[in-house]
Design a protein around this nucleic acid. Structure first.
Lengths: 197, 197
DNA sequence: GTGATTCTAGGTCATTTGTCCTAATTTTGG
DNA sequence: CCAAAATTAGGACAAATGACCTAGAATCAC
């Protein structure tokens, strides 16, 4: 098989295992078994475990970046774009209930491990943060765009954590509705400000 | 030394290490070294690693339960009590920035490990949830007390996660202020409701 | 004080881990 | 079709892990 195809399989399998079981707990053998290759072959593609982590993070960033790009394509208003972000929680409902947020839980683990990959993992947060900030700026919220972005990021994280803790309750749906209501209020405030000036 | 004293030292050291480094990553040797006893002695007090985890969770529950109890002692209003809860984030500012929330990160890890201690760890969430629910009920919010409790729990979790990701920014302070403002609004709504009836 | 109980130290054991090596196999270029 | 390059398999290795055992030291009851 072409090396690039095997490499891609390794990274996608590692991505899934890191998410479902955690980075430290997932071994070379686990990933190799899931891909269906030998541990020796594995080493041909990745010299160290940290290299796989880098590749997984890069893959997640690329994936999310493309997703965010799709949400500003076409004629969507900034508010509609932010609403799409909020609905990630619903979209990934099942996964979040069983494993939490892929961004938040990975960072938490790397923080505890004092792992050198921490800044790269923070890059995932930055991606969403900057994208959200831009949307709020487009809504006219130049002064507090970053604070609004951080606020909604935090609420998403909290919702994911509690949905993970209480997977049998319809908490995620309730929280998404409240966040969308919050978004409505923010957009209305913006309208008022425009009327004032 | 009395067995109970050694045991207590083990549990408190394990508590700290599980919080700062994670449960799975912390070894018997790590805890024993921190306590200053031999690994063999360790086994006299705890047969398995899961037993230590149970003891750590029980310790955290006891600790938080006493803390919550102090916050309803005396003549504090329910609103003041909830405000005390919100200010945990400020109180543990430093620790949260470096290791996140002790409740949320432990549960996340156990969830990924599919660890049998998961329900016990959820008990920590339950403790706060029920306590907060009671406070909102005392504020007259009988209908949505649980939803309000879950909401503020989620926001605390989210704030802790982002503060961990961005430890150099004054995010926690901002978020606490917003949560206190939210609490004001909730209390006001309650006052209005009382006026209506 | 002495015998019994509680506590501690240090070691063993099989298993798993990340890392690394080498030989075989597959694919590719001319 | 064949040599060179790319890819793979399988094993070796030291270190670390959770679990377990036994003998000695400290403490207590009487």
């Amino acid at each position: 098989m072409a090396a690039s195809a095997t490499r891609e399989k390794i990274v996608s399998s590692a991505d899934q295992l890191f998410y479902e079981r955690g980075f430290e707990v997932t071994s070379f053998a686990d990933v190799a078994e899931m891909v269906g290759i030998s541990r020796g072959n594995f080493y041909y593609h990745f010299k160290t475990k940290d290299e796989i982590l880098d590749a997984v993070i890069a893959r997640r960033i690329k994936d999310r970046d493309e997703m965010l790009g799709r949400w500003i394509d076409g004629d969507q208003t900034p508010k509609q774009s932010v609403a799409s972000f909020i609905r990630i929680l619903e979209m990934n409902n099942k996964k979040i209930r069983s494993s939490g947020c892929p961004v938040g839980t990975l960072f938490s683990e790397l923080a505890k491990l004092n792992h050198p990959g921490r800044p790269a993992a923070r890059g995932l947060f930055d991606l969403f943060r900057v994208w959200l900030r831009r949307r709020f700026e487009e809504m006219g919220r130049h002064r507090d765009a970053d604070a609004l972005a951080m606020h909604i990021l935090a609420r998403s994280q909290g919702a994911a954590t509690l949905a993970n803790a209480y997977p049998d309750e319809p908490f995620l749906e309730t929280e998404v509705a409240q966040m969308l209501a919050w978004l409505d209020a923010v957009a209305d405030q913006q309208d008022q400000t425009q009327q004032d000036t």
